[in-house]
Design a protein around this nucleic acid. Structure first.
Lengths: 142, 142
DNA sequence: GTTCTTGCAAAGCATTTGCAGACCT
DNA sequence: AGGTCTGCAAATGCTTTGCAAGAAC
């Protein structure tokens, strides 16, 4: 369980405490295969364990800083999270018809990021590329 | 004033009314050179004219559908708008230190969009690419 | 023992909604 | 005249905050 070790390391280095809640939240997140909303995570956790929303909000912040999860924001005001460990760099296609979110990889995005850094002296740390359109689902192509 | 004609056209085609508020809002937006928050627009408008926030919210939606403005959403939960007429296709660099938002163009993004469409049968309609990092400002590079 | 964390309830903030009156067409 | 739009205030929904009790160190 590499993510647990990483959380441990981050907590130690930052003088944060190893509370059971933090590990429970991390465990649940790493069981979810896709992007998730906070409410979805909250409900999942509270089927078995009991953790308040305030604590979940607090710790999503911690996990985010630790590099264990990533926040994704979309034009429709939805905010999602996803685990970020052992994930390939990827971006998202969002279907305007059905709302489906599809991951995709394109190595050329790397070239653009490198180009930006060279041309503008802007030190790139992260990025998000969201592509909106209509997916290949039949329902969406009427 | 091309934007006014376009709004006119859109309103007629969609059986929406040509209220003074709609033209006032549009006029103010097209005086703003950068991205803006709703509150900024609200305050600007209400120095001279009087338009309620509800009406502004309603009509940002209308203008957005008419293709006259574009909504941009960032990881920090901020939502900005910008006028979209006569603007080159561009994306955004966001400085994590000072919050500055810089526009940039890279023609290669087009290749990625085309590639997505060919590879996945996803019909691309729009996109947003946000690059986060540290800008070249001295204050941000201590 | 000290400090951080949790959890509850309350507060905050941006956006949406309901509705009466006003205004386009 | 008839339906739409505006503006106010209230409602909503998501997130943050304050604080007392509990837990980690």
């Amino acid at each position: 369980m590499k993510q647990k070790e990483l959380l441990n390391k981050y907590l130690l280095e930052n003088n944060l405490r190893q509370t059971p809640e933090r590990y429970i939240i991390l465990k649940h997140i790493y069981k979810i295969s896709k992007h998730f909303e906070i409410d979805f995570l909250f409900n999942r956790i509270n089927k078995k364990d009991k953790i308040s929303k305030a604590t979940i909000y607090n710790n999503l912040e911690v996990l985010s800083k630790a590099g264990l999860i990533k926040k994704i924001s979309f034009n429709n005001n939805k905010i999602l999270y996803e685990k970020s460990l052992n994930k390939n760099q990827h971006d998202h296609l969002i279907c305007n018809a059905c709302g489906e979110i599809i991951e995709f990889c394109d190595p050329r995005i790397k070239n653009i990021l490198d180009g930006v850094q060279k041309m503008t002296n802007f030190q790139v740390q992260s990025h998000e590329l969201n592509i909106y359109g209509v997916c290949q689902n039949k329902k969406c192509n009427k």
